[in-house]
């Protein structure tokens, strides 16, 4: 559809984009402010708040935990999600329909409820270490991305290519790795990115699964914010935004950003 836009609608859209982007600019500005309190526009420019993050052990430690959890959780969810997505598309008619519903349950169940249930049953009930609970919880939280996004690329994959390779004597696993996987590369990258971003920003599940000495970066930021209101938080936020920028650059380079609207 393409019709002319009423100038009022255009102006409204511009205001919306201002509303969406101005807060992020404000965070960057206040991270650079040479004051001990948060303010915008910045008074004086300094990078000392960024230096301050690296001096604070809690931020360093939780950032590393967050990264580990995100990588392990995303890896785990892809490891169990890709085979499931493959089977759902390859043997669509032969598998019960509730199976695909089951794999989106982690989106349907409120995150905060899931976190609480995990704490009760896994961390306390089974006595698993907090770190394991975090990885497992995140892997499950992001499983729907792995199954759905990879599934979307498998839906347009021509399985007769795979059959050709198989009938020429290629073993199943090798066929998958050399024929199927390269064809669904875009889906796998997209799933990885969405899952990683979701994991690294997660609050609702992680808030229950932090124990003595173990916390994730967003939870640490929340805890810090309740006590201090200095530009350190703004500079941590800027670093997190830079991670997002990096990820978006990867998306743009590999898939083009418009895939996100699909």
């Amino acid at each position: 559809m393409a019709t002319r836009i009423h100038p009022l609608l255009g102006a409204f859209a511009i205001l919306v984009f201002f509303f969406l982007l101005a807060p992020l600019v404000i965070i960057v500005g206040s991270a650079l402010s040479d004051t001990t309190f948060l303010t915008f526009p910045p008074q004086g420019l300094t990078l000392r708040w960024f230096a301050n993050i690296f001096q604070m052990e809690a931020f360093r430690r939780t950032a590393i935990t967050s990264l580990q959890v995100a990588l392990l959780g995303t890896g785990l969810s892809l490891l169990i999600g890709i085979p499931a997505a493959y089977a759902l598309n390859r043997y669509r008619v032969e598998l019960p329909r509730w199976l695909s519903t089951l794999f989106v349950l982690p989106i349907l169940v409120p995150e905060i409820v899931f976190g609480f249930a995990l704490l009760k049953s896994i961390t306390i009930g089974l006595g698993l270490p907090v770190f394991i609970s975090l990885v497992v919880g995140h892997a499950l939280l992001i499983l729907p991305y792995s199954v759905r996004v990879v599934g979307a690329s498998l839906a347009s994959f021509d399985f007769s290519i795979e059959e050709a390779a198989r009938s020429l004597g290629c073993p199943p696993l090798k066929t998958f790795m050399t024929v199927v996987l390269p064809n669904i590369r875009a889906g796998v990258i997209a799933a990885f990115i969405l899952a990683f971003i979701t994991s690294i920003n997660d609050v609702s599940v992680s808030v229950f699964l932090t124990g003595p000495g173990i916390s994730t970066l967003p939870i640490q930021i929340l805890a810090h914010m309740e006590q201090f209101f200095d530009p350190t938080i703004a500079s941590v936020s800027v670093l997190l935004m830079l991670v997002t920028v990096g990820v978006m650059a990867i998306v743009e380079a590999t898939l083009g950003l418009t895939f996100l609207t699909k």
Binding site: P23, N201, P218, F229, S237, T244
Partner: peptide, 21 residues
């Protein structure tokens, strides 16, 4: 679209924090 996606990929904590300022 990029301008709309960017806030979406930024964490909940960061985006809520902006409103504190």
């Amino acid at each position: 679209i990029v301008a709309a996606v960017f806030p979406l990929l930024t964490g909940v904590v960061v985006r809520s924090f902006a409103w504190l300022i």
